[in-house]
């Protein structure tokens, strides 16, 4: 075999290795979801969704955790959405190329890489203790809001960046002020992109466990939160709690709850992708 044939042969070997690696990721994803479905799908019924947690696996349900997750999701959206989008607008439209912008940019990039559990420590100290909110839905939501803020800001910036300069020029040329241009032209034009980013960020928040454990969210909450100041649990913590129990029945519960959690995550991702595709078409 001469060198060229050897090189061709290596090339083919690598190609199959590449296909193998790519497929193995997807196969694992499938095995993994399949396994969880087998473990948990029989456990899912209406009672499982509406039952309170219980000492006995077969009587336990996810009601309080599900409601807790919805509370957290709602409050986090209310807090992180306006702040994140406003910060994104500022960075993209106002603070271009000054010193502050450079500082903000490196700072946000760094925040995006801070482990989520560190946000938990921040929330524990600032929201739970100093602001005296206790282990409440509000404290949890504030913590998660800070956690997803960098994601919302970055995706807002990218969405705004994609708006053609010609649209801005046209608006300014008609005598619109900067804010009028942003409000009437840029935001509507970049809305789909911003929405995509926010939904993806929220889908991350819905799956977060560690920071909420640190701020003191409970594994066992016998009631649904009635106000932002109530104690709470969320789906991932409920799952974590069930995984840590030795009885087989709880593993089944955990699998069933995971199916529901994954369902929520995938649906949110699906919606995000839908908005992105719809929005991207607009510029093509």
């Amino acid at each position: 075999m001469n060198n060229i044939q050897k090189n061709r042969w290596k090339d083919q070997v690598f190609k199959f290795w590449g296909i193998f690696c790519t497929v193995i990721g997807l196969v694992l994803l499938t095995i993994f979801i399949g396994d969880i479905l087998i473990d948990g799908i029989r456990r899912i019924d209406w009672d499982f969704i509406t039952d309170l947690p219980s000492r006995k696996a077969e009587n336990s349900g996810i009601y309080t955790a599900l409601m807790g997750s919805i509370w957290i999701l709602a409050l986090t959206t209310i807090i992180a959405f306006p702040v994140g989008v406003a910060a994104g607008i500022y960075l993209e439209e106002y603070a271009k190329n000054n010193k502050l912008a450079g500082l903000l940019e490196i700072n946000i990039s760094n925040l995006a890489g801070v482990p989520s559990i560190i946000y938990g420590l921040l929330g524990l100290e600032v929201f739970v203790r100093i602001m005296n909110l206790g282990a409440s839905v509000l404290a949890g939501s504030l913590t998660l809001s800070l956690l997803i803020l960098p994601i919302v800001i970055v995706s807002t910036r990218e969405a705004i960046k994609a708006v053609p300069q010609s649209i801005k020029d046209a608006s300014f040329a008609l005598g619109a002020s900067k804010w009028q241009t942003i409000w009437h032209q840029i935001l509507p034009a970049s809305g789909g992109g911003i929405l995509t980013g926010v939904i993806l960020a929220l889908s991350r928040a819905v799956g977060e466990t560690a920071p909420l454990i640190v701020v003191g969210a409970l594994a066992y909450v016998p009631f649904v939160p009635q106000s932002p100041m109530d104690e709470f649990s969320v789906m991932p913590i409920q799952i974590f709690n069930w995984i840590s129990r030795p009885q087989a029945g709880f593993i089944e519960n955990a699998a069933a709850a995971i199916i529901i959690l994954l369902g929520i995550t995938f649906i949110m991702n699906g919606i995000a992708v839908y908005f992105r595709n719809k929005w991207q078409k607009k510029w093509k």
Binding site: Y94, A95, L104, L122, V126, L146
Partner: peptide, 26 residues
């Protein structure tokens, strides 16, 4: 316009506060 700009800037500055908060608390 000025008020709007300052409001937006405040939102952006929250991120700096977060970093400072983390460093201080820790």
């Amino acid at each position: 316009e000025l008020i709007i700009e300052k409001t937006l800037m405040t939102s952006a500055l929250i991120t700096i506060a977060v970093t400072l908060g983390i460093i201080l608390v820790l």
